[in-house]
Design a protein around this nucleic acid. Structure first.
Lengths: 323, 323
DNA sequence: TTGTAGGCGTTATCAA
DNA sequence: TTGATAACGCCTACAA
């Protein structure tokens, strides 16, 4: 096991100066086709891999990418959703010799994001649960991509909430449901608004009343929300919950009430988590390609190439027993 | 926002040489109490934070810690358990200005671990699903900690499988179950053997037949395992599954068979995942402090301090409805 | 116990 | 388009 080849080795092997080799390898700066070819060959011959630490030191580019989660408490980091994002990010980062860091950003300290993004060693940030106050003050120079909504300087990647919600709601209407209630996400999370918009639209189209109840993506809230809904609008015949965990809680709450699902009330979720097919009745929901979304966001930050301000990923309806 | 202070700034501020400052900050090498105090004060004054990239470059210490998962296919990385490990590791790594990388290690290529561990930029490895063939050939110099079983040069951190299993089994026996079957982990995973040992011991103590069926931690396998068990040993009155996902699958399989849980057959899992309380009946299981375990393993690797060869974390029984 | 003087591997500057 | 040369921030013999 001999020493890893350095850029100097490559340059020598290719018969060029280290500077030229650097330009070719890093892809910045001019270089003749000649030089390009010879360096590429040398790289292949020697199995050269750039040293991330040295590169970070020279460029101030940072040695890791942060996954930052905005929330009210540090427990925001324990959400299984976050685990999926971190794992997916770590995988694309590994291919680029970059590590991943995980940080909680208190919702009430919007400046924390800028501090993190400019922190030493941080090459970029993948933001989970983006909020307007956190996004607003970011300068153009900040290398951050958001999962959810973005801003002028922050590209966003997200599931097609609107389309997914429309799919669910059309399915509910199509199977005869007329009094549909919805458990939304927390009001401070703008990326859930698209789904609520879809709900309002469908309600308008079908002359149904708007029955909105705020949620927070937790099962516990789903259970209480179910009670609230049935108390306030007893003739409700369907509940659409933003997040499968919430939907499972709704299922639980309705069961406690002696309400039959889907006989009396249909229930649908959003995310298609692993447990969705295992509930009773099995949960009707729509897919959420979290890993794919996170991978694209991470790639956008790491490659620093221009991306469209909003990239949407398809959400497809999965019909099971609950609706 | 001015330039971050460097070690040179600290040295100047403290009135010592950069070398002395380095010794104090990094904790290696001699230094008078005098010097120690003054440097510490300077660090606090200036808010100095070492540059991870520069340090890695100088020490070859690496800039990130890898979470490596041994498995048959790359899908091993999508297990929710891995997400928990990665998230926990990333959190402790972040405190040390280190990033996390995620890698799949093919089970049939034991040498892959050594390659990864010695790869440039990798400061250490937290190994998930350790196997003997992968652990064996590692030299003392490899900085790796395992979650599960270890080896001569690899400290291990794990949940107390034996104790946890004993807790479950004693509970089953205590509630009158006499014909207990067990769904194990994959046979190539040595860390599940401790739980199987506990099972054999309890079976012996109670004169029960040994009813073992191999599992793989997936829900799908749990379902088929339930069918296998009931076909082979129809008088089985309890199933203990290694892994809650498997247990949930067992629940599903038994339901399909028209078997009442817990009336006819009790079911217990292992892990206490988020869904455990949501199944019907709610799953009896034992806790698995994965985050805590991963954090300790990561700290052991990062701090390079001697640790005991095996650190066990308590698993406590959570009795719900299924057993 | 302290300080001086490289060196780690890469990129950036600037003159050729 | 190329090649010396000087950073980047820290660590570590070695000499004092």
């Amino acid at each position: 096991m001999t020493r890893n080849p350095t850029l100097a080795d490559v340059a020598r092997h290719a018969g060029v100066s280290p500077a030229t080799a650097s330009r070719v390898v890093s892809g910045r700066g001019p270089a003749s086709t000649q030089a390009r070819r010879r360096v590429a060959a040398a790289v292949a011959d020697l199995g050269y891999v750039p040293d991330a630490a040295a590169r970070a030191l020279a460029t101030h580019g940072g040695t890791r990418i942060a996954v930052a989660v905005i929330g009210d408490t540090p427990t925001a980091l324990t959400d299984p959703y976050v685990g999926r994002v971190v794992a997916a990010t770590a995988e694309v980062a590994a291919a680029r010799e970059v590590g991943v860091a995980l940080h909680w950003l208190p919702r009430h300290d919007p400046a924390a994001l800028a501090r993190l993004a400019h922190g030493r060693g941080i090459g970029g940030v993948v933001l989970v649960n983006p909020t307007k106050p956190a996004l607003e003050p970011l300068p153009r120079s900040a290398r951050v991509a958001a999962i959810g909504v973005g801003s002028r300087h922050v590209p966003a990647f997200d599931v097609d909430n609107r389309g997914g919600a429309l799919g669910v709601l059309r399915h509910l209407v199509g199977s005869g449901r007329r009094h549909i209630a919805m458990v939304t996400g927390p009001s401070w999370l703008p990326c859930t608004e698209r789904a609520v918009d879809a709900y309002r639209r469908v309600a308008r189209e079908n002359g149904g009343e708007v029955r909105l109840v705020p949620g927070d993506f937790t099962t516990a809230r789903g259970t209480t929300a179910a009670l609230e809904i049935m108390a306030r609008w007893p003739d409700t015949d369907a509940v659409f919950a933003l997040g499968d965990l919430v939907a499972l809680g709704v299922l639980d709450g309705l069961r406690g009430l002696g309400v039959d699902v889907p006989g009396d009330v249909a229930v649908a979720g959003f995310d298609d988590i692993a447990f969705a097919p295992l509930s009773h009745p099995a949960l009707t929901t729509t897919t959420n390609p979290v890993e794919q979304i996170a991978a694209h966001a991470a790639a956008a930050v790491l490659d620093r190439r221009p991306t469209s301000p909003l990239t949407l990923f398809r959400s497809t309806l999965v019909v099971r027993e609950s609706a």
